[in-house]
Design a protein around this nucleic acid. Structure first.
Lengths: 259, 259
DNA sequence: CGTACCTTTGACGGCTGTCAAAGGAAGTGG
DNA sequence: CCACTTCCTTTGACAGCCGTCAAAGGTACG
């Protein structure tokens, strides 16, 4: 698991997302596939849901990038999640009455949507998958928590470096990606909205990093010249991205048989 | 539910914590009570777990306060959670291999501990409780996320006000608490570690707030003189603390009967 | 009654925000 | 294929919130 996936239906991103925690049985795979029944192509800037609206469905990103964000009082937007293929969008919200964020595509893409009741069905049918959903939520939250913690204590330079490496790490679990040059469809404005910085300052940092020969951002691509220095500035530790699930599932009965 | 609880065994905090989402059946109550079998008194500064250690058990705070924190590279500690009676400690971590934080009591108190396997048992026995655990995790995370978001965009003054109101709101769901004067066993140093500020700056803000007649912190108590102004500075919206669970449980079969 | 922790105050510096403006790149419609 | 609009990048001057360093006084606890 965990490595290169293709887009045909036989290997789905949701199976890969959940399957990274433990080997899935046939019944479990079948249950998860119900989440991917309704594909649709979505244009760039398509809105998946509006803020403050009632939660009725969740999404799985099949291709493309999305993000969730909310508007702050000071007028600056705050981006919460950057979502890439395989991510389940809305897990954070689905036990609340309404969305606290707005979700929008930031590239063209394909998503599959499913009623949030589908989660309830799966929770009822499979304790192991319930645990896997716990793990999935916990990891999505760990991502956010880690970033927020860093944002409190580090300089803009370190935050930016860290985010680049974090995103690279996430991407490289989907496809083989070259750290030397990879796709990152985020404007400097958006990077600022993720990291709590102004676009002006983000730009200043990029200019400095470029003149120091560390990296360059051109269009929607990141080019890394000096990996070592980048890792040092970022002080990057990927533990919080870990897929390893603790022995918890050992305590669970083996995969539920067909009902 | 949701209001004043006493300490005798007939009304437990964990039942109240989970019970705020929906009415619990007898079987569900029984399951949850298994989490509270092993009480123990713990002194101030008792460590519940060390960072980087393997996760083997979770705790429910029965009385007293605790917190989780991690050490940052810059030497400053970052406190992640402030935990009060009824909170389940370790929910965030239990699908990971090891603790990313350290957990410590910040007052004397009583905790009950249970092997994390107990969660697995409950997940297997009751889909409704699984959903309730989802909700509980999601709310604990929302607390953290909200705080972190604010920390990125607001001044020290606003962060401190917000944290005071947030904590007051959480406390008042356990017992009736007077906003005019309530217990808050956190030093200025610790407040700084929660909010990403130095103790020096926290102090400066408190001095200013006191001279403006807004509030006063003396010892481990907060005294509020001007609620209105406090709410304005904090721009406090309690949506993220909401107990309301969306209609999700309607989709679940009613409470599992005795096995 | 000493030690450790917490609060308070002052001087100083720097990272980052604000405001403003100009140039480049990309998408749209005629 | 060319105007037009919109968004993104880049640069400069200036200000302020908050951190750093240091030290003194208070308070709690054994």
């Amino acid at each position: 698991m965990n490595h290169k996936l293709n887009e045909n239906n036989s290997t789905s991103y949701i199976l890969s997302n959940i399957g990274r925690f433990f080997e899935l049985g046939d019944h479990e795979k079948k249950l998860l596939r119900t989440l991917e029944r309704r594909y649709s192509s979505v244009a760039n800037k398509s809105i998946l849901w509006y803020a403050e609206t009632r939660i009725d469905q969740l999404y799985v990103i099949e291709s493309g990038w999305a993000c969730t964000y909310r508007d702050n009082i000071d007028g600056m937007r705050q981006i919460q999640d950057i979502l890439i293929p395989g991510d389940i969008v809305g897990l954070r919200d689905f036990t609340f009455k309404k969305h606290s964020t707005e979700a929008i595509m930031i590239t063209p893409g394909t998503v599959s949507n499913f009623p949030f009741q589908a989660i309830a069905d799966i929770v009822q049918a499979s304790p192991r998958l319930s645990i896997a959903f716990f793990a999935s939520i916990a990891r999505q939250e760990a991502l956010l928590t880690e970033r927020m913690m860093l944002n409190l204590h580090r300089t803009a330079r370190s935050r930016i470096s860290h985010f680049i490496l974090e995103t690279y790490t996430r991407l490289s679990r989907l496809n083989s990606v070259d750290l030397g040059y990879f796709y990152l469809p985020l404007s400097q404005q958006m990077l600022g909205e993720i990291l709590g910085l102004t676009n002006v300052h983000v730009n200043r940092v990029f200019m400095a990093l470029e003149s120091e020969g560390v990296l360059r951002k051109h269009r929607n691509f990141i080019e890394i010249f000096n990996e070592k220095q980048l890792y040092e500035m970022a002080n990057f530790n990927s533990d919080y991205l870990s897929d390893e699930l603790d022995g918890l599932t050992e305590y669970l009965e083996p995969q539920t048989s067909e009902s």
